[in-house]
Design a protein around this nucleic acid. Structure first.
Lengths: 199, 199
DNA sequence: CAGCGTGGTAGAACGTGTTCCAGTTCGGGA
DNA sequence: TCCCGAACTGGAACACGTTCTACCACGCTG
């Protein structure tokens, strides 16, 4: 999957620039895994990526952009894996739940990283709208595809349902990360929501 | 409606302390109306409220706590008004939509204030979980009450539906505030979501 | 009445996101 | 090959949330 990068088209970058950006993203992920949103400090990212602070800001105009980009990338990777190994289940609801459960497990494996990415996503303002939309589109697409077989064309209603599920998904993930719900509660609540939405 | 305050019970405060807290909240609202989340600067809040910075932090342990408290208070006020003048509509779905439309109009009247409160709500971490829960409970309650008449006891399913609607509500509000959707789109999307959820 | 503790004040200090600056390096065109 | 502009570098500077320090004022208690 080709990921559109912040402001610049991938093909317009030299190899060393692609290298630099990868180092930056990797550094951000490493720090996020260890310390969550607060653990990603721009000076540390720059140092780890072996890049000057100013350069870091040339590639990503803010911490939020950087972390939303990380989310974008990892969401894309995850959905790629899911497409190669599609959600299982007899009914549309079961497949959607399988998708959400697997995604939840991915996040649970690195809760601090999830914290960093989600806080950035939620805090993003208009200047990051397009990146946020991109993440949203990936997720909505995956949900839509899981609802029916890959053959049938999704209806307008399918899309509406998928978008509701997607938003509930983010909301519940956030409530888990901010300590208002356990992981168990989240999966249970998601199951209830999907049951209501996917008849 | 009595609002539980951050950490301290209302009745344990002297009059002058109640006064101070009110001045702080009012100052925060004024600044938020003008400049949104970024416009609420703690030094300015303190100055406007005629209170030392340290005192501000004694009353509200962080900017997020302060703004979530504002949201708590204003949400409570709005729901009080709604309870005195309940949502109209023949069906449960119509009443819920009336509730959400009216709430949306309140937010649209002061979009910058909405921005400040919502960013705080979304950015809140575990230390503000109880305040966030309180806001959530007010909203879920209002939605539940609007679904059936005030007489019938809400079922378990009613609550599940109300919680899904509530989360979709916040998500759509956020997408409006961060410029990813127009107010019109939000009301349309909410209508679609409610139609799906309230049969 | 004296003293004491709580809560208040003014303002310095600190940490981290972001911006700016002066100098250096690098890649592509004359 | 030489030169120019764009990109990069190290580091200072700035803004704002948060914390800390030193001191003051008030109401309660011995």
């Amino acid at each position: 999957m080709a990921i559109a990068e912040t402001g610049t088209i991938d093909s317009e970058l030299t190899d060393s620039q692609r290298e630099r950006r990868k180092r930056i993203v990797d550094a951000a992920i490493t720090l996020a895994v260890e310390g969550g949103y607060d653990g990603v400090q721009m000076r540390d990212v720059a140092e780890r990526a072996d890049v000057a602070l100013g350069t870091l800001y040339r590639y990503f105009p803010s911490k939020v952009h950087l972390l939303v980009n990380v989310l974008h990338q990892l969401t894309g990777d995850m959905v790629d894996r899911l497409d190669r190994n599609p959600p299982k289940g007899q009914t549309a609801g079961a497949r959607v739940l399988d998708l959400l459960d697997r995604s939840m497990r991915v996040l649970q494996r690195e809760p601090q990283l999830a914290d960093a990415m989600m806080r950035a996503l939620m805090f993003a303002d208009a200047s990051a709208a397009s990146e946020v939309d991109a993440v949203s589109a990936i997720m909505t697409g995956a949900i839509t595809r899981s609802m029916h077989g890959p053959d049938r064309e999704p209806t307008h209603e399918d899309h509406a349902i998928a978008r509701v599920i997607e938003n509930v998904w983010w909301a519940y993930i956030l409530s888990w990360l901010s300590g208002r719900a356990s992981a168990r509660q989240v999966t249970d609540d998601l199951e209830a929501a999907v049951r209501l939405l996917v008849r």
